Simulated scan of single mutants.
Amino acid sequence: MRVAPGQVIAFLGFRLLYSAVVLFGVLVLVFFLVQAVPGDPIRLALGTRYTQEAYDALMAASGLDRPLHEQFVNYIGNALTGNLGVSFRSGEPVTLLLLERLPATISLAIVGLLIALLISIPAGVWSALREGRLSDAIIRITSQFGVSIPDFWMGMLLILLFASTWGLLPSSGYVAFTDDVGGWARRVILPGLTVGLVAAAIMTRYIRSAVLEVTAMSYIRTARSKGLSGGVVVRRHILRNALVPVLTIAGIQFASILGGVIVVEVVFAWPGLGRLVYDAVAARDYSLIQGSVLLIAVMFLLVNLVVDVLYAAVDPRIRLS
């Protein structure tokens, strides 16, 4: 089924409009929720350097002395131009801080997703093709156990085994991929395993269900009745159709990792967006909190948009609408 160019343009236009509406809602929600957080960010930012003169000057410079509706209008206008303000704590532009931390989080998310795919696809397919057998039960119980484990507990367990007990890998720290590939690889394994194992447990269950659904289709029975071997049926028909939904769940998991690795990054001292958000919340750094949440929302929407387009491109039965 060929999709007309006009249909693609209409689909992309609708998705971009939808994303813009969602982003505006995120802007509004985050702005007013941050305003409701107890504590004085200016007082916290000054710390022991507090004086009334310094307090008033920083209050005026940050615009927090203006009425709330003026602060909101200014924030929306600045955000549309890429100006996310200045961090109360460091005095650096929020945009610059976010761009500095973004590569660490993206690299961790990619490694975690690859680990999840390498585990979940074979496990999910194997479990579905052996439904009701002992191996199926073991995989289902293991995946349920993986879903139930908190990220921080998984991370501490991996540190205890691979860093403290066996001394094979460093327990924390970060080296940029462009500076030292080997050093980056050694340090990304444990946090990558932490997020990857949890994501794999979730994806295994989806893949198993997708394979079971395809296996029950009439065209699978027809293929087998033609005398095709089990391996050919699995490769050409079952996997080809069952793994299309993997795009969706993989995209969701990738976006979830990007926006939900706060605990993992804190445990492994990984200098990504999650750690930045954690520090910003602790310091009541309004501008940094708002900018971080906005960037995470943008990445989540972009990933979903790419997944929607790829899903329709891979499966010819699906029309862009």
Rank of each mutant, 00 (worst) to 15 (best):
R2G: 14
A4M: 12
P5C: 04
Q7L: 08
V8N: 09
V8T: 10
F11I: 08
F11H: 06
L12N: 05
G13L: 04
R15E: 11
R15Q: 10
A20C: 10
V22A: 00
V30N: 02
L33N: 05
V34R: 01
A36C: 06
G39L: 08
P41K: 04
R43K: 13
A45P: 03
L46Q: 09
G47I: 05
G47D: 12
T51I: 10
E53I: 11
A57Q: 13
M59P: 01
M59Y: 04
S62K: 11
R66Q: 15
L68T: 09
Q71S: 06
V73E: 15
N74M: 04
I76Y: 01
N78P: 01
R89D: 11
S90L: 07
L97N: 03
L97T: 07
L98W: 01
L98K: 01
L99I: 02
L102Y: 06
P103Q: 12
I106Y: 01
I106T: 12
L108N: 12
L108D: 05
I110E: 04
I110C: 06
L114G: 15
L114D: 11
I115E: 14
I119A: 07
S120K: 13
V125S: 03
A137Q: 15
I141E: 03
T142R: 06
F145Q: 11
V147Q: 04
F152L: 14
W153N: 06
W153G: 05
M154F: 10
M156F: 15
L160C: 03
F162G: 13
S164I: 15
Y174S: 15
Y174W: 13
F177R: 00
T178K: 07
D179E: 15
G183A: 11
G183Y: 01
W184V: 06
W184C: 09
A185M: 13
R186F: 01
R186D: 14
I189S: 06
I189P: 07
P191S: 10
G192W: 07
G192L: 04
T194P: 13
T194A: 13
T194M: 14
V198N: 14
I207R: 03
S209D: 12
L212T: 09
L212Y: 06
T215E: 04
M217D: 15
M217S: 15
M217V: 05
S218K: 09
A223T: 08
A223Q: 06
R224E: 15
S225V: 09
G227M: 09
L228T: 12
V233I: 14
V233E: 07
R236G: 06
V246H: 03
V246R: 02
I249N: 02
Q253H: 09
F254Q: 10
S256E: 07
S256H: 03
S256L: 07
S256F: 05
I257H: 00
I257Y: 02
L258P: 00
L258R: 00
G260H: 02
V266G: 07
W270F: 08
P271T: 06
G272S: 10
L276V: 06
A283H: 11
Y286V: 04
S287W: 01
I289R: 00
Q290R: 06
S292H: 02
L295T: 01
L295H: 00
A297H: 00
M299E: 02
L301Q: 01
L301A: 00
L302G: 00
N304L: 02
N304G: 10
V307W: 01
L310N: 10
A313W: 13
A313E: 03
A313Q: 08
A313F: 09
V314P: 04
L320D: 05
S321M: 09
